[in-house]
Design a protein around this nucleic acid. Structure first.
Lengths: 212, 212
DNA sequence: CTTGTAAATGACCTATCGGTCAGTTATTGA
DNA sequence: TCAATAACTGACCGATAGGTCATTTACAAG
């Protein structure tokens, strides 16, 4: 009789890791590494705390997995898109900035960026992974694009890396603003609009004036 | 005999708070709020842990004191300097950016910025203080300067706040880069040089072309 | 020199949380 | 249908660190 009640748990060896990582991303993003409780992560993943240890040896490893799995692929897209692009830098740059603005709402990239910034001292080896796999890749990519555009005579002289900062910095600031101050009720930032206006501004300063 | 040995401690009611705040700033900057140990702060301030509680009711209050006391005055200078300035925006902007670059090495501002970004979720009321007293003041100041320059016909149209992001964002990115990635051996950034090149670039895009 | 007092301490308390483990139960395949 | 197994759980442990308190001691006033 009435033995058809739901089982207390299911065995789902393959699905767990991704679910745990997703839950961990949320909790880490909300609380930072140290303040995040494994109990909360487990509950949100629909699993017991002990079950986490079937899939990850400890909290550090889980954190590393979150950074690696949840973000890197997303960034790979951007890289591919930029690399595939053929055309003037003046047309690519607005696309890039808009893409960043979009990623801010679509993905948890801003939260993760915040996490890395906040926890870098306590996890130097994590900061290293993030730097080597993501940031230096991104910075290098943009720097390269700029250097190439300079070689084609589209962009004024100047250190490509600094130009990359001029281009990306305001978007990063916008991401962090949204992540840091909007939760407390500060005036929200329209990132898409920021992307458009900043693209116009910075390109105005970077592009070589055409004879016209 | 030999009773002239150093006393175990000194009674220094007035000097303690500032020393504790200075020590706390260092430790918080190094480890973030949660990972910072009161024991460490106390030792660095040359005092016992219990003594902290003679001056601050709890860890939160100490954190708030650090943010309020150690940073706000420093920023007030910048504000005064910018407000006192009379002259074209094209001359003021490089000064501002250079000042930020300098503050990065002179003060612990980057570390505090990192702290706020990292801990904002766990201390919404702190993020609010920081926002109301510092950030919104700074953003408002720069926005105002830009709006005034627009009114004088020096700067192209566009939302002043976005222009402020275009101006400041790359410097913030530089600060965070230094704070986050240089400790792990990443390629260092010359913030002064970044300030100069970025000023030239962004002004090129923002300034109204003079008849010449 | 004596003494009042409050600045300062060291030892202690306790809540929290990362991590462990013996036992339970869903699931598979014979 | 019935083991065999390994995914999963609940209850527990120990360390860490925020916070407290009885006691000590620097120091100034009388």
């Amino acid at each position: 009789m009435a033995d058809d009640r739901e089982p207390r748990f299911r065995r789902r060896k393959t699905a767990r890791p991704a679910e745990i990582i997703a839950a961990a991303l949320e909790v880490f993003a909300e609380r930072g590494f140290a303040a995040a409780r494994l109990e909360d992560i487990a509950r949100r993943a629909g699993v017991s705390k002990a079950a986490l240890y079937l899939y990850f040896p400890d909290k550090d490893a889980l954190f590393r997995a979150v950074v690696g799995e949840a973000i890197a692929p997303n960034f790979a897209d951007l890289r591919a898109m930029a690399r595939a692009y053929r055309g003037p830098f003046a047309a690519l740059a607005p696309l890039l900035l808009e893409r960043i603005a979009e990623a801010a709402t679509t993905t948890r990239l801003p939260a993760v960026a915040k996490m890395i910034i906040g926890e870098s001292r306590n996890f130097p080896q994590l900061a290293r992974v993030w730097h080597d796999q993501i940031v230096s890749g991104a910075a290098g990519l943009v720097s390269d694009l700029i250097a190439e555009a300079q070689a084609r005579g589209e962009i004024k002289p100047g250190r490509p890396r600094f130009h990359a900062f001029s281009l990306i910095g305001p978007m990063l600031m916008g991401l962090l603003w949204r992540e840091t101050f909007e939760p407390i009720g500060a005036e929200p930032i329209d990132l898409k609009a920021l992307a458009r206006q900043h693209a116009a501004t910075v390109l105005g300063g970077m592009l070589v004036e055409t004879g016209r």
